[in-house]
Amino acid sequence: MTIKNRKLHINNISLTITAVLFVALFTFGSVSYDQFFSLSTFLNLFNDNAYLIIASVGVTFVLLTGGIDISIASTIAFTCVFSAYLLRLGVAEYIVIPLVLLIGILLGLGMGYMIQEYKLQPFIVTLAGQFFMRGLCSVISTQSIPITNEFYKHVALNKIKLGSGKIYYYVFIALIIIFAAVYLLKYTRFGRCIYAIGGNEQSANLMGLPVRRTKITVYAISSFCAALAGVVFSFYTLAGYSLQNIGLELDAISSAVIGGTLLTGGVGSVLGTTVGVLIQGIIQTIVTYQNLNTWWTKVAIAALLCIFIVIQRMISSRTEKGKR
């Protein structure tokens, strides 16, 4: 019981730090630049990062069990290219979208099965998944395919006006995913089982929790979210291109880490991850306002990542000492 309390404690500390950092960055931006402080800046963070939020939430599930999934960027690209290709062939959108989501789930199940049943390293299996999906993208088309479907255009271009800002329809998909994930992790057996596995897989197994099923399911969830993020991304860009989003898996993982997810598993939250994505978004915005080279974004994010990992390391090593 004490250990559980302490873990939750770590969770709260990280989430607080992340939230404070977000507010601090936003305040910094508002003080430094005219017209930064506005509802539209805030809402644009969601508009521009909706797909990243969905993908990061998915990957958080895997990270919580102590695994890793680096195939998501390719899955997003594959979803975009494949749906653009099918739409160009004249297939209706209500067939295309469920189909790509199903492919995502199947991919995740396959990877999860190999990781769980044959005890392969998650890093290597999802690496193979990454190569596989990226390769399939290029096999379908190496050129960018535009999407001219009416439904896609409708979702992509329509928005709700909110004061000075606007929210695109597809942002609501991200919000629904966030709420569903919070509910799933906090209030269901499945969610608690994920935390238990991340804390100590052997104990979870001995307690009679369905470790095998849960571990395979988290990979399916991650790939499903990646496919959904791909659908949202194709709303966002209205095109499918085989080389898009290279390196996005690292953005998603670093969002989760900045949001307080421990990469050894067991600690973290979806809300933290969401704030992590928003922090990356705001750094991007500040770099744009400052008129700097976009590469500063990467350096700043890496520096943040480093600081957060070291802080986590310090907190968790203190907990370990407490246990002894």
């Binding site: 390769g135 096999v139 085989s242």
Partner: peptide, 12 residues
């Protein structure tokens, strides 16, 4: 482009 698919299958 198929090289990556081959590599993926090989790794597995």
């Amino acid at each position: 482009e198929i090289i990556q698919v081959i590599k993926a299958v090989l790794v597995i």
